[in-house]
């Protein structure tokens, strides 16, 4: 009896890793999926906090892919070690705060560690030659293989025929002839392959796979670092950067203003850790105050809070200010008009 080779596949939830996994599964290899959670991942649900995305399927794409392919999926939480990569990327950032090359190195390393722990044979990814400006150029692929310590054990099935044969190919665990020769930024090859496999309903995220490729998110993270005077973060900090409008009226404090019911509920979960404001007389947003605030700051925040509620056109709105210890007071304020809020407060 021949022993089937066993591979660990990095499944992101996108089409490429789905295709790469399928290609290898079809060659009779046993595959287990690994999905890496960095804290910055864009998932259907982060979007789904907001009500306007209600119609979209609320699902985790990596789990969906694994379920479709019938492979096990383990989600690895790397939030703690990821910090170092975001704060001091060895290979620098991409267009925004995305440390793609370091990130890929870490993800593949995690897959390698899993492979070694469980006695698997090799690692595969959905990387495509020349697809992304930063990490998937031919010159960059060897860096990922080296940094992750996988070297010859890292197979990129979609582009394999354009790359040097790896150990899984040389050992005959996979047949190189049945692997792909896809390269470049056009998605044509992948779409055709998806069609051939009969895949439908797969996720096609616009932009990158995480918030760090987003200009607005990166600006908020930079602002966060600048005013904390420290390049560091906790998971909750980076979560909150994904939610609400962020306004910085003064250098020492910022307001996080919910945009809809979903965000209201989400921010409510943080009410014991921030002074928060809500409108008592009209429906309106939950607003968190991040920073040390004095009475004058709170009065200003109350008027801005009133501006974003249903009472914005009233003479007076009652705003409830609740401290972290739960003690509350009511302030009657006249809402600001949108013109009174300077543009440069918006982050």
């Amino acid at each position: 009896m021949t022993v089937r080779a066993r591979a660990v596949s990095l499944i992101s939830g996108g089409l490429d890793s789905m295709l790469a996994t399928k290609m290898v599964l079809d060659q009779g290899v046993d595959v287990v999926g690994i999905n890496i959670y960095t804290g910055f991942c864009i998932t259907g649900h982060t979007q789904a906090i907001r009500f306007k995305h209600k119609e979209k399927p609320k699902r985790n794409n990596a789990l969906w892919v694994a379920d479709q392919l019938g492979v096990e999926l383990h989600i690895l939480d790397v939030v703690a070690e990821y910090k170092d990569i975001v704060i001091h990327p060895k290979h620098g950032y991409g267009a925004h705060l995305n440390p793609c090359l370091d990130c890929k190195g870490l993800m593949v390393r995690k897959a390698r560690e899993w492979m070694e722990r469980h006695g698997f044979d090799f690692v595969l990814t959905g990387e495509v030659l020349g697809q992304r400006p930063k990490s998937q150029l031919k010159s960059k692929l060897p860096i990922v293989a080296r940094d992750s310590g996988t070297e010859d054990l890292l197979l990129r099935p979609l582009s394999a025929k354009l790359l040097r044969p790896t150990l899984p190919e040389r050992n005959g665990w996979v047949d190189r002839d049945r692997l792909g020769a896809i390269s470049g930024r056009s998605r044509r090859g992948q779409i055709a392959l998806a069609k051939a496999y009969g895949f439908t309903g797969y996720a096609q995220p616009a932009g990158g796979c995480c918030f760090l490729t987003d200009a607005n998110y990166s600006a908020k993270l930079r602002d966060f670092w600048r005013y904390r005077e420290k390049k560091d973060y906790e998971l909750d900090d980076i979560m909150l950067l994904k939610v609400g409008r962020h306004l910085r009226p003064r250098p020492h404090f910022k307001m996080i203003i919910a945009r809809d019911e979903g965000e209201n509920r989400f921010l409510q979960g943080y009410c014991r850790r921030f002074t928060h404001l809500t409108s008592d007389s009209h429906p309106g947003p939950v607003v968190l105050l991040d920073g040390e605030t004095n009475d004058e700051d709170v009065a200003l925040a109350a008027r801005v809070t009133a501006r974003f509620g249903k009472g914005r056109d009233e003479q007076e709105v009652r705003v409830r200010v609740t401290a972290m210890d739960g003690s509350a007071r009511i302030m009657s304020v006249s809402p600001w008009s949108s013109e009174q809020i300077p543009e440069d407060w918006y982050l």
Binding site: H45, A48, R59, A66, D67, E72, G269
Partner: peptide
């Protein structure tokens, strides 16, 4: 939980495992 997506995801995870 409070994230509505779990109604899909935890069952999917259970199916896989």
């Amino acid at each position: 939980c409070t994230d509505p997506g779990v109604l899909h995801d935890i069952p999917a995870w259970c199916r896989i495992h």
